[in-house]
């Protein structure tokens, strides 16, 4: 069951279109999975429409005339055929297939090959262009990431399965933001492992034991 949602303020910014594109993408994917947030968004959209589409008396007269715009628009044909783009929205790892939320479908074709990291951890990079770099990360049962903190923010959505990190337990659909203040060590004990989508705007910083040696290579986790 989903316990962790974007905050009300984040949902409002998302609905306004003022949240950062990277964050918006993860919020959109969460909302695809979360009926609760979809319902909240409907209310927010209605409120925003009421407060945004207001009639301003001083704008009553239209420079250049609206009638020209009106006739230009009504000369356009209706668009009834919208052939849906052929995006299947499925990623595969080692014979397992995962159906992604709608918002992430476009990124299937921008996802690189899976690479095997330490332990039972797999990672596939996703090219987000100027939005930054994201990863699909898969933890096999018993897989764990060495304890680390973050320089910058890590926005994560659990796509399938569940994991724990010493702070909390996360289930499919949970949305979380880890900042520099969090030190955590994610670990999956779900029988089927756990797939997450994660955007980090700066590399991880490992804090414990031998894992500190990984710091120079932390771009691997970026």
């Amino acid at each position: 069951m989903i316990k962790l949602h974007p905050t009300q303020a984040q949902l409002v910014e998302f609905a306004e279109g003022t949240l950062s594109p990277a964050m918006s993408l993860v919020v959109a994917a969460h909302c695809d999975m979360c009926q609760h947030c979809q319902e909240k968004l409907e209310v927010i959209n209605t409120q925003l429409a009421e407060s945004s589409l207001v009639y301003d008396v001083s704008e009553q007269e239209l420079p250049g005339g609206y009638s020209e715009m009106l006739s230009r628009i009504t000369s356009l044909p209706a668009s009834h055929i919208d052939v849906p783009a052929q995006q299947h929205g499925i990623i595969e790892l080692d014979g397992k297939t995962f159906k992604l939320p709608r918002a992430l479908h476009r990124y299937v074709s921008k996802t690189g090959n899976w690479s095997h990291l330490v332990g039972k951890l797999w990672q596939a990079p996703v090219d987000l262009g100027d939005m930054g770099r994201a990863n699909f990360i898969y933890m096999e049962k018993g897989g764990r990431v060495p304890e680390h903190t973050h320089k910058g923010n890590e926005i994560t959505l659990v796509l399938d399965g569940e994991f724990s990190d010493g702070i909390s337990h996360y289930d499919t659909g949970d949305f979380m933001i880890m900042t520099e203040d969090h030190v955590h060590a994610p670990e999956s004990n779900a029988s089927e492992g756990c797939l997450v989508f994660s955007i980090v705007d700066q590399p991880l910083h490992f804090t414990s034991g031998l894992a500190r040696l990984l710091n120079p290579f932390s771009q691997l986790f970026f």
Partner: peptide, 26 residues
Amino acid sequence: SNVWQKAHLFNAEKGSPSTWIFTIAR
């Protein structure tokens, strides 16, 4: 223009015209 061309996508059960048009503009 989108309202004109895609009016068939408006669904009164899912929300008001103003909400739909606002989300298009957004």
